[in-house]
Write a protein that binds this DNA or RNA. Structure first.
Lengths: 218, 218
DNA sequence: TAGCTTGATTTATGTAACCGTTTTCATAGT
DNA sequence: ACTATGAAAACGGTTACATAAATCAAGCTA
């Protein structure tokens, strides 16, 4: 009935979605971007979107919050979260103990240590070109990369056939194995539920870097 | 005179500016960008514009191999190789860069970084009680622990039900999931090809520690 | 009456369109 | 032949619009 409908009409304060409820959580502007950069920009925006979510709360603007709660932020990321390795990794002494002593049974905390090492050194080769990503999704599960794992990505390495790479594809970052065959270049997931993706000449896929390590935390 | 003007009109091949003569050198698309990121994106676009003009190609690799090859020593251990974390992990400053510093956009190697982290801090909670093991075997493959992976083990954590633990069993170290049921305490591999192991009262199984992380290197 | 449905209202977001500017070409005038 | 002028085409910033998503209030149903 038109009568019924009429009664529903009218201005209503507080109706509608809330401000800042969009995916960026803030007002937006329109920008013109060269075509080749579009997917890269989008990917980055998605990334920093999840980053700010991870920040703390929807505290409207102050971004001062950034605590060191890495773990928390992992859970909330839409696609990835990313970090950089610590800036200034000192060279730490690495005492070498004989590995034969190993037999000495349960207490490794004592003197017969093999070797001490700095995880940063072990895992990061090119500090300046390395960053960390937290995975979401299971497209690489066959090689043990699981949802929530942290990837160490080196941008200075050349993406070669067979390497695990981070690619910006249609504005989204993905982890895939790079495969260069006679049939062309492919991005291959390590999960039979997902199809390989052909990288065409004209496609706007950008390789961000090569994955050197994957870290699972329990 | 209108006559004069008319003669000048009409379609004229080749007239007008050339394609790609704009500041980006290619066609553009409009994107919506959150306000706080606008200047950042613009800065990056300008940056990469001038770079490509300058013809600076990213040289494929520009790195000197770091000498300390941890990997070698991994191979020599019979069951596991082990290491301790670096002794003296300093608290490293974690610079928070202002987003005004902008610089390189998708290149995290540059300055506009949100957060840096120290892998030691991220992965090691109790430095004194932590050591590293290199896995041999595939008994935990279902949760992504593969042969050759490095485990971070914390001896100070209490082995609880469901935790991944390192157990010394008949003189051999193994990784298993600890399961405490009414049927008793079990060490359960994450691989259907291996049987769970019942831990009897009198058995000489010693739990060395709880696995907090697993690292795969590619 | 509680919960579901429906339509209105408000914000969000991708895209088309608009319009002044810039670059280039062709013709007219000198 | 050289310059001035206007048209054509692309550029790029901005506005406008259409559709989607989120939220509220009133009506409806059980």
């Amino acid at each position: 009935m038109s009568n019924t409908i009429d009664k529903r009409g009218g201005i209503r304060q507080g109706a509608g979605r809330k401000k800042g409820s969009g995916k960026f959580g803030e007002p937006t502007k329109v920008l013109r971007v060269p075509e080749s950069k579009v997917s890269e920009v989008q990917a980055w925006l998605n990334l920093s979107k999840s980053q700010s979510k991870a920040g703390v709360k929807a505290s409207t603007f102050s971004e001062v919050e950034l605590g060191i709660s890495i773990n928390k932020s992992q859970q909330e990321c839409s696609e990835f979260a990313w970090y950089l390795p610590a800036n200034d990794v000192n060279f730490i002494e690495i005492p070498l103990y004989s590995h034969k002593v190993v037999a000495g049974f349960p207490s490794p905390a004592d003197d017969y240590i093999e070797q001490r090492l700095d995880l940063n050194e072990k895992l990061i080769r090119n500090k300046e070109a390395t960053f960390l990503l937290v995975v979401q999704g299971d497209s690489m599960q066959k090689i043990g990369i699981k949802d929530g794992d942290t990837l160490i990505v080196d941008r200075s390495l050349e993406p070669k056939d067979g390497k695990i790479v981070i690619a910006a594809l249609d504005g989204e970052l993905t982890v895939k194995r790079l495969s260069m065959k006679s049939t062309g270049t492919w991005l291959v997931p390590e999960n039979d539920d997902y199809p390989p993706i052909l990288v065409r000449e004209e496609s706007d896929i950008v390789i961000w870097g090569v994955v050197t390590s994957a870290i699972s935390q329990f």
